[in-house]
Nucleic acid binder design. Structure first.
Length: 364
DNA sequence: TAGGCGTGGTA
DNA sequence: TTACCAAGCCT
């Protein structure tokens, strides 16, 4: 009986997907697959890593850049971590980029350059966890496994009116998703659930009248789907302070250095500054300068990280001799776009030099 | 296991 | 402005 209901729900959703699926650069449409085309595991992997906690719109331009520059696992493995970090700069969660390189190396070394084809084997690779391993296995290899991302958590929590708060409800949600997942087309089913969550079963003001599952939805029957999923309250976000020092040579070049290899923004580039962290305020005064110069305070920039807010006092010194700093390297302003600069550092540089990054964000 | 880990868009 | 959200992973 339950099996028949599950079959009914998955069939109706797959029919909906056939008509309403999103067209995405890394996705094969259902009709393409019926015509015999197979998803490229490398493209699926790359897109899934980029999409972790990141919107489709933010990912698109990066995906095009990466798939053109490194079109397969061999090319990715041949790239250096620094090249990959520079191309990733601005997308956030930089451990994803470092793990991309590590996983590519592991696939070359341990799997003969071919992607493992099961979720269990995929999950052993760096940066691939419960969600991503299941997504790649289902989409690229047809493994009938429960794929659970944030969208699917929301859809399932509403469909069954699950009152247990997240993350405690994860086990029940996974079990429900597993019961719905069909033996045939598990990848399309997972993507259909995600598309439903992204377009219809949205966090706020879901479009229930358009939902192919509205007749089955317990939360809708209870008249307020927005009450689900129930979530535990989040910790508040502390404010931290620090200082950043933009040293400018007489030809306009800027002094950069590399961050440590662990923690926040690991292995990315930065301008010199005081030591700040999510737990500790840094010195905001000119006393934190990396070397003596005519430092002028040019303002305070604010940047929101997931777990804290950073307010950086930005100082500038012009006509700094290139021989002054003990370490780091000088970069002309026209070349800044090629550096592994996180957005917070671009903001600091822009505060000191409004003409830098004048073009703003990268184009599509 | 709960917290560390980015960024940009939206209301 | 503030708060929350978006295809999570790792320790």
């Amino acid at each position: 009986m339950h099996h028949l209901i599950a079959n009914e729900i998955s069939s109706r959703l797959l029919d909906w997907y056939g008509v309403h699926h999103r067209i995405l650069p890394w996705r094969l449409s259902p009709s393409d697959q019926l015509a015999g085309k197979k998803p490229d595991p490398y493209a699926v992997w790359l897109s899934e890593i980029m999409l972790q906690q990141t919107t489709v719109e933010a990912v698109k331009s990066y995906y095009y850049t990466f798939i053109q520059r490194w079109p397969n696992i061999r090319a990715m493995a041949a790239a250096s971590e620094d090249e990959i970090l520079r191309a990733w700069a601005g997308l956030g969660y930089y451990s994803r980029a470092r793990n991309l390189k590590k996983a590519a190396d592991a696939i070359m070394a341990k799997h003969g350059g071919r992607f493992p084809e099961t979720a269990a084997a995929l999950k052993t690779l760096p940066g691939i966890g419960d969600y991503t391993s299941a997504a790649i296995a289902a989409i690229a290899f047809g493994e009938p496994i429960a794929v659970v991302d944030g969208n699917i958590e929301r859809v399932i929590a509403r469909l069954y009116a699950i009152a247990t708060p997240l993350p405690a409800a994860k086990a029940e949600i996974r079990q429900r998703m597993g019961a719905l997942t069909p033996e045939q087309r598990p990848g399309d089913f997972a993507q259909a659930m995600m598309d439903l969550g992204a377009m219809i079963c949205t966090p706020r003001r879901p479009a229930c009248s358009l939902c192919p599952l509205n007749r089955d939805c317990a939360a809708l029957a209870g008249h307020d789907p927005e009450l689900f999923p129930v979530k535990a309250p989040k910790a508040e976000r502390p404010v931290r302070t620090g200082a950043a020092f933009v040293a400018i040579a007489d030809d306009g070049a800027i002094l950069l250095q590399k961050r440590q290899d662990k923690g926040l923004l690991a292995n990315m580039s930065e301008v010199p500054g005081s030591r700040w962290s999510a737990r500790l305020d840094g010195d905001t005064s000119v006393a934190a300068a990396p070397f003596p110069a005519q430092w002028e305070h040019v303002g305070v920039i604010s940047h929101i990280f997931t777990h804290f807010e950073l307010r950086l006092s930005v100082y500038r010194a012009r006509n700094v001799a290139r021989s002054t700093p003990a370490h780091g390297w000088w970069v002309k302003q026209a070349q800044l776009g090629e550096e592994a600069l996180p957005t917070v550092m671009k903001k600091a540089i822009a505060a000191a030099l409004p003409e830098a990054f004048k073009q703003g964000k990268r184009q599509h």
